[in-house]
Computed example of a mutant assay.
Amino acid sequence: MRTVLNVIWVVLGGFWLALGYFLAGILACLLIVTIPVGLASFRMAAYVLWPFGRSVVKKPGAGAGSAIMNAIWFVIAGWWLALVHIATALAQSLTIIGLANAWVSIKMIPVTCFPFGKQIVASGGVL
């Protein structure tokens, strides 16, 4: 069932969201200082492309470094990626099939804004 949900997700907006994260990662990697932000963006692109069967949990031991990187992330990419999630959710909510996807897109906004100190896990363990 997860595969079917993921395919519907990709068709109804997941591809464009993942492309946004990928572009943010490329832009962040252009500056040497923000390479960790770019790597986080690539990690999020993989999650956004195929979200069903995965969840985001707090990473044990995340501290002040994660808070600083979250602030940098939010300024560089987080706020506009959150806007893309909102726009995608609005478009997805126009159909009954897309309502579930719109809800998933809205649920991704907190991790979109502040991804550091978080970990993407599958039902069988860490990805």
Rank of each mutant, 00 (worst) to 15 (best):
K107E: 12
K107Q: 14
G117P: 05
K118F: 05
W103L: 14
A82R: 00
A102K: 01
L99C: 14
N101W: 09
F114Y: 13
S105A: 15
S123W: 13
V104N: 11
V104Y: 12
V121T: 07
W79M: 10
T95E: 12
I76C: 13
L81W: 06
M108Y: 05
K107P: 06
T88D: 09
S123C: 09
A82S: 03
I76Y: 11
S105V: 01
G125Y: 00
C113K: 06
G117A: 06
I106P: 03
I120A: 03
P115K: 04
A122S: 14
A77V: 03
F116A: 03
P115Y: 07
L94C: 13
S93I: 13
G124C: 09
A87V: 12
H85S: 08
W79I: 10
S105Y: 02
W103Y: 13
G125Q: 00
I120H: 02
M108G: 06
G117M: 08
L90V: 15
V111W: 14
I72S: 02
K118H: 10
P110E: 12
A122E: 14
I120L: 05
I97T: 12
S105M: 05
L99I: 15
V104P: 05
L83P: 00
L94S: 10
W73K: 01
S93C: 15
A87C: 11
K107H: 11
F114M: 14
G78V: 01
F116T: 01
I106K: 03
L83R: 01
V111L: 09
G98S: 05
I109V: 14
G98E: 06
I106H: 05
T112P: 07
Q119R: 11
C113M: 15
G98H: 04
L99Q: 12
P110L: 11
M108R: 05
I96T: 11
T95D: 12
S93K: 09
A87Y: 05
I96R: 03
H85A: 03
A89T: 04
W79R: 04
T112I: 09
A102N: 02
I97P: 07
Q92F: 06
V121H: 02
L90H: 05
P115D: 07
L94Y: 10
Q92A: 07
V121S: 00
L81M: 13
I86V: 15
P115R: 02
I76A: 12
L81A: 04
K107W: 13
A71Y: 08
L83S: 02
W103E: 10
F114E: 09
A71G: 11
A102R: 01
A71T: 12
H85K: 03
M108L: 15
G125E: 00
T95S: 15
G98M: 06
V121W: 02
A89E: 08
P115M: 08
V75I: 15
G125M: 00
T112M: 10
Q92D: 04
H85P: 03
A100V: 15
T112K: 06
W79F: 15
S93L: 13
P110T: 10
G78H: 01
I106G: 03
Q92M: 15
T88V: 09
L94H: 09
I86Q: 00
A71D: 08
Q119A: 08
T95L: 14
K107I: 11
A100H: 09
G124A: 13
I109D: 08
S93N: 13
A77S: 14
N101E: 07
K118W: 04
A102D: 04
I76M: 15
L99H: 08
M108K: 02
T88K: 06
V121Y: 04
L90Q: 08
W80Y: 15
A102M: 06
S105R: 01
K118I: 00
